[in-house]
Amino acid sequence: MSGAGRLPCPCGAGGGAPFRGNRPKDMFELIGIPPQALFGQLLLGLINGAFYALLSLGLSVIFGLLNVINFTHGAQYMLGAFAAWGLLSYAGLSYWPALILAPIAVAIVGLAIERLFLRRLYGYDHLYGLLLTFGIATILEGVFRQRYGSSGLPYPIPGLLSGGHNLGFMFLPNYRAWVVVVSLAVCLATWFLIERTRLGSYLRAATENAPLVQAFGINVPRMITLTYAFGVGLAGLAGAMAAPIYQVSPLMGSNLIIVVFAVVVIGGMGSIMGSILTGFGLGIIEGFTKVFYPEASNTVVFVIMAIVLLIKPAGLFGQTR
C-alpha cells in the first residue's frame, strides 16, 4: 500500500532499518520453519479460510442460481456483525441467540433488497446487478461509518469458548477452533442441500430453464428470493462469527470482499464445492505467505487468481457457461 516509493523511506532493501530480516533464530533455520510452527500456520490458514469459504459459498450460491454478482456481500457480512453487537448491547442477547438471529436479520434485509431492487435487473447484463449491489454496499457502509465511526466496537468472546488449548506447536484459542468447525459444517450442509436434495434440484433446474420449472407448479420468483436471502444469511452468519475476533467495524466487509471475490473466481463462478475448497485452500496459502514473505500476504491471492485465469479461465472447478 505504500505508494510513496519515490521518497526516501527506510524500508528499502539494505536501507536504514538495521533489523529487517533478522528474525528469531529458533524459528527460521533453513529455508523455512520447523514443522511445529508449520502446523501452527496451517491451522491459522484454515481459520481464515473458514471465513473465506463461508463468504464465497454465499456468493457462489447467489451467482450460480441468480446470475447476480452480489457486491453487497461484504456489507452484509458487516451487517451480521453489527446485528450481533446490537443484540448484545440493546437487547442483552448473548452470542448464542445472536448466532441464529443475526443471520436471519441480515437475510430479511437481503429479502428486501431482492424484492425491491435486484428483481428488476434480472433481464439485463450482469454489470447492472453488480453496479446496483456495489452502490447498496457503499451506502450501507457509509451510513454505519457515519453513525459508529471507523474504529469499530468491541464484542466479547462468549464465556463458553474463551481461553484455549496449548497444542504443543501453538496456542489454539477455543473460539477459533469453533469457527472452523461451524464453517465446515455449514459449508457441507449447503453443498448437500443444493447438490443432493430435491429442493436443490428444483433450484438448479430453475436456473437452467425457469419457465419450464414454473410450468410444473413451482413458484420460481419466490424460490429465487429465498435463495438470495439464504446466500446473504450466510454472509450474516460469517459476520456474527467474526464479531468476537475482529472489531465490529463498518469497514470490516470492504476489506474482505475483494479477496473473497478472488476466491470465487479461482474456484469457478457458481461452483459450490469449488468455493469451499478454494476458500480453505487459499486461507492456507495466505497463512504460509504470512511467514515466508509477509509483505506479499495481501496480494498472493490475486497472483494466484491471475495465474488461474490464464490457464483455466472458468476457474479451477467451474464450467464455461
Binding site: R23, P24, N48, Y246, P294, N298
Partner: peptide, 11 residues
C-alpha cells in the same frame, strides 16, 4: 526481529 504486516490487515 520484526514482521511487516500489509496495511491495512484484519487478522
Amino acid at each position: 526481529g520484526n514482521v511487516n504486516a500489509p496495511f491495512p490487515s484484519a487478522d
